[in-house]
Every structure is written in C-alpha cells, then in structure tokens.
Amino acid sequence: MDILIRQQACRIYTGGRNFDRNLPCVVLIHGAGHDHSVWNNQARHLAHQGFGVLAPDLPGHGSSQGTPLPSIDAMADWLLEMLDALGVAQASLVGHSMGSLIALAAAARATERVKALILVGSVAPMPVAPALIEAAASTPARAHAMINQWSYSPAAQLGASASPGTSLLDINLRLMERQAAGVLASDLRACNSWTEGLARAADIHCPTLLISGERDQMTPARAVKPLCAALVNAAGGARMITVAGAGHAMMAEAPDAVSDAIRGFLRT
C-alpha cells in the first residue's frame, strides 16, 4: 500500500494481506541501499500467521518518494511518524543491519510503543569501512561488488538459492542498482556516524532478540556480543540466536530459519 507521510508517498508492503491494525503489529525495517523486498518471505509468513505487517520502503528508497534521511535518529523519527499515520499504538520492531539501528533508536525513544525488538545482523556501533563509503559515493558498482562479497556465506556465493531458480547475488545487485544515486552512500554514512547504540541499548526494556548469521562477515557473531551485553534492561535479558551457515543476507539465505526465529520470539 502507498500512504502519505510528511506529504510524500511511502510504499509499505504488508506481506500479501491487507494491513489490520487490530492485529499485533510487526514493522520490518530494511538495511542500507535496500527496500522492503528483502523481507518478502518473513513478511508473508508473519502476515499469514496473525500479525499486521508493515515493511516500508524508507524515504528515498524503493518506491517511496523523497531523499534518504541523513541519520539513524532521523529515520527512527520517521518510523514513529509512520506508526502515527497508520494509527498504530504499539508495534514490534524488526530491523536488518542499518534497519536494526533504526529499530534500536526508535525503541529507545518510544519505549511504551515498542512491544518487542528484534535486531538482525546487528552490531553497535556499526563502523563502515571508509573504502566502502568512498566507493558507494564515487563508483557504486564497486561498492555493490564489495557488499555482495561480504554479505553472503561462502556456500551462498555459488548457490543453491533457497528460492528455486533465483540468483541471490544478482537479485541483491539489481536491488542496490535500482536505488537512486547517493542513497547507499548516505545510508552507510548514517550507519557509520551513529555511535550511540550501546548507550541507547540500556534504555531498552522490552523483550529483545538478536539474530546473527554464523558466516556473517559484515556483522560477525562475535561482534554482536557487546550489543547483547549492553541490552541489560531488556525484559528477561536479551537473547541471541545464530543462524547456522548463513551470512549477513540471512533473510534470503535462510528464510525459514529467520522467519521461525522472529515468529517464535514474538509468540513468547
């Protein structure tokens, strides 16, 4: 569906079911240079399992108008405005990579509105290699190649795709190429410059789950642990799940494992 937020059209994918605000709401937030479609499997699964799903294209991404917001805090503000626009009082936030920082920032600032927090492929802070930011700004094709090299497990780099007949790396390339010029560089700078993640983590009181990929080179499982430790006030303590064999692009590499982890946690 398309709605207006700040007078700009925003594309929100709802997992193949009409959004029902009376159902428990789950927001799926994509990462840098991506759009809602990275969540296709998880969105459809949750939407068919009793959740109201909102998977927006962030401003300037995918089919949403506007330009990319310059900071994680600005994206978190926008996300909460999206919930306002849809009349959603409370939601669980699920974010991948940059999206996980947005979810963390939003949950820290609107503690009453966030029922649960799930951070996928997340570390805080999230420093981005200067060479990658530079490439994203000057030679996007080089940046896309770097991202593909680092985002997939060794097995997934040659296949076989969980989705029959698809080439995951080429899908990711096309998705990144489809974004307007400057979007990826802007997103990566936003990730790199948001250094408050560990401090904000202490403000999180809702149940929190971290999902990491065993073969993730972008946000390696060992690097997730400081964030997990900083979530000291999360209800029941932050939990961590490692998806066997998966890289950073784990929603595509291991769609069922990620869907099951999210649904299982939200049902507890």
Binding site: L158, G159, A160, S161, S163, P164, G165, T166, S167, L169, D170, I171, R174
Partner: peptide, 13 residues
C-alpha cells in the same frame, strides 16, 4: 535455472 541466471547476470530463470 540458477546456473544460467548466474552466467547471464540475471535475477533468475
């Protein structure tokens, strides 16, 4: 399908 897609540089086949 995946092999020809990878060889062609397509998203799938």
């Amino acid at each position: 399908e995946e092999r020809i897609a990878a060889l062609e540089g397509g998203v799938g086949a």
